[in-house]
């Protein structure tokens, strides 16, 4: 019997191979190879492209630890990642709940479309439209002053909040989608059972809905946190003089000074830090889930 199961699963793998192959080939070509090239670059003194002599070194990694600047920026970026993720939960989770449990039929489709809409426009376009909204004399400022009886001055452009707003807007659909999937899978009879046993709304949320939708929350958080920590476009455009983060410094190394080795080393340190954070939090989150 056991033998039979074993051969069965092996042949399952064999028949699955043609289905897996395109994805893994693509991953090898598009991710594994460039990443290995970057590992290689990060341990070089010079880029061979520039025609100068080069050798292997760990100097680039040492730079991270010898300059306080990089640590400060990494912490600032991690904080940004946490804040954006938190706001995405606060905004995205209720929306996902309404989509999954309250709305039905046509209205659900319409709202769903609105959630996915940001994905259909280019990221840069979205950021520039925020720039028009947030600045002094911009759309938000003008609109509020037209309605309110007293004069207020709204100029959030070129500040930390502007960066958070821009990033939350870009990433909240991920949270809505992942939470929607897990919330929809919750059996309505569980909710009815809870109600009939006299649980209040808050108790229902705390004891039934949030625990059952935890996988979606965790997946959404990971999908958001990782790219936000390394983001550079939004901070650069919306952040003004406060817009220097770990991601922008990496970009500078690649674009402004052509120091690919240092840029690559900084990227790998970021990758390592993010992996460590995910590894540390995953048992806690899995228990919660």
């Amino acid at each position: 019997m056991a033998e039979h199961v074993a051969t069965g699963s092996r042949s399952g793998l064999r028949s699955a191979l043609p289905l897996l192959l395109p994805a893994y080939l693509w991953l090898t070509v598009a991710i594994f190879l460039p990443l290995s090239a970057m590992v290689f670059f990060s341990s070089m003194t010079e880029l061979p492209l520039s025609g100068k002599a080069w050798s292997f070194t760990l100097e680039n990694y040492a730079t991270f630890f010898s300059e306080r600047l990089y640590l400060t920026l990494l912490l600032a970026s991690l904080r940004l990642g946490l804040e954006v993720t938190l706001w995405c939960v606060v905004i995205g989770f209720p929306a996902a709940y309404v989509l999954a449990k309250v709305l039905k039929g046509r209205s659900r489709e319409a709202i769903f479309l609105l959630v996915i809409l940001p994905f259909w426009s280019n990221g840069l376009v979205r950021i520039f439209s925020w720039a028009m909204v947030l600045r002094e004399g911009g759309i938000l400022d003008t609109a509020l002053n037209a309605v309110l009886p007293f004069k207020i001055n709204i100029d959030v452009m070129y500040s930390y909040p502007a960066v958070v707003i821009g990033l939350v807007h870009s990433y909240v659909p991920y949270m809505v989608l992942t939470c929607y999937l897990t919330l929809q899978a919750i059996d309505d009879s569980l909710i009815e059972a809870g109600r009939s046993l006299g649980a209040s709304r808050l108790q229902m949320l705390r004891r039934v809905i949030i625990p059952l939708s935890m996988p979606g929350l965790v997946a959404g958080a990971a999908l958001i946190f990782v790219p936000v920590v390394g983001s550079f476009m939004e901070p650069r455009i919306l952040g003004g003089r406060t817009g220097t983060f770990y991601g922008t410094v990496i970009e500078d190394q690649f674009v402004a000074v052509f120091n690919w080795p240092l840029g690559a080393a900084l990227s790998f340190i970021l990758l390592a830090v993010v992996l460590v954070i995910l590894a540390l939090t995953s048992p806690v989150l899995r228990r919660a889930a």
């Binding site: 300059e67 600047l69 600032a76 003089r241 406060t242 410094v249 402004a256 000074v257 052509f258 120091n259």
Partner: peptide, 20 residues
């Protein structure tokens, strides 16, 4: 020189970070 360019960038980044 490349060394000057990198030194200038380090200084500039430091200024930009300290402003936060």
């Amino acid at each position: 020189t490349d060394a000057q360019r990198e030194a200038y960038l380090a200084l500039w980044q430091e200024l930009k970070v300290n402003v936060k």
